[in-house]
Amino acid sequence: MRYQLELFFTALGFFTRLPVPAWVPWSPERLNHAARYFPLVGWVVGAIGAASWLALALILPPSVAVLLSMAVTIRATGAFHEDGWADACDGLGGGWDKSQVLTIMKDSRIGSYGTVGLVLMLLAKAAALVELAGAGDAAVAIALLVAHPLSRLASTSLIHTLEYVREDETAKAKPLARRLTGTELAIASAFGILPLALLHPGEAATALIAVAAVTLWAGRYLVRRLGGYTGDCLGAVQQATELAIYLGILATWNFT
């Protein structure tokens, strides 16, 4: 049990800026096995976002509360996945071949594709959450609690199904480049899917279909362009599927 707790804290320390106990050891191998708990980290981030939203919505208009709650979660994660989204937009948008795409992604500077992609992603998520706020404070909180774990499961599934393509041994995501065992994938799936129980069945089904569609498309696209994934690609998929969940819930409302 202690080992499992250490793996969870390893994942939490890697994917967020939240402090972890000093007694937790770190090694690339532990990070490798900690992939099973990436969706559980989403529970923590989602809870931070939901709590921030509920507190801020008591005193501020919904649009402002949404933006500030997004800022809180971005601070908690260190914009880890947003950075990956921006880098992926730059690389896949501006690169012509695999080598060029990987080189652009590695550049710490943000380009036109990354800037536009990041602004549009943040605006789309904010707009979707503001629309969800029209159904009450609980709707936004539930959406956050569902979207963060499930979107991280989408990224985890790519670790399990695709090849890691960056050969640089110093790459930050290199320790993650191992397929999960059946048990590890089952644990990750449970933590990613369980929060769907917070939604109505129709909303849950639409959100799951949206995530599956985006993840499948992203996987095929990344294989075609790169032959696999990088750490930036994982962040990009997390962002894209998080937005897909919000849009899926809204689409369900419109149809019903």
Rank of each mutant, 00 (worst) to 15 (best):
A57R: 13
A11I: 00
V211Y: 05
L92H: 06
I245H: 10
P195K: 12
A204I: 02
L5D: 07
V44H: 12
D87M: 08
W96S: 09
I249F: 06
S69D: 08
E169K: 02
A177M: 04
A186N: 04
L208E: 00
V130S: 05
I193F: 15
K125Y: 03
S63T: 11
T183P: 08
A34E: 13
G136N: 00
V214T: 09
A79K: 12
G117I: 13
A135G: 12
G42V: 11
G111E: 06
T73E: 13
K125C: 03
A71K: 05
A147S: 11
D107A: 12
R220A: 08
T241F: 04
L194R: 13
W53M: 06
Q4T: 03
G228I: 01
L196K: 08
V116M: 15
G114H: 10
D137H: 13
W85H: 14
G78R: 11
E167K: 15
A50P: 00
L122Q: 15
H200K: 11
L150M: 03
D137A: 12
S69K: 06
S151W: 01
T103G: 09
T10R: 10
L145Y: 04
A50F: 15
G136K: 01
S155D: 05
V45D: 15
G49T: 05
A244P: 03
A207E: 02
V72S: 10
A127H: 15
V101M: 15
G84D: 08
R152F: 06
Q238I: 13
L144H: 07
S99Y: 15
V45P: 02
P19Q: 13
L145N: 03
G95T: 01
Q100G: 04
D97L: 12
A154R: 00
L199H: 05
R152A: 07
A127R: 15
T16M: 10
T230I: 13
G111C: 07
A143R: 05
A11Q: 01
V101S: 15
A236L: 03
D232K: 02
G95Q: 08
W253L: 14
R17C: 06
W253F: 15
I110Y: 01
Q4I: 08
T16R: 03
A244E: 07
A186D: 03
A139Y: 09
A141C: 07
G235T: 07
F14K: 06
T215K: 00
P201N: 12
Q100M: 07
E131S: 15
G111P: 04
Y164P: 02
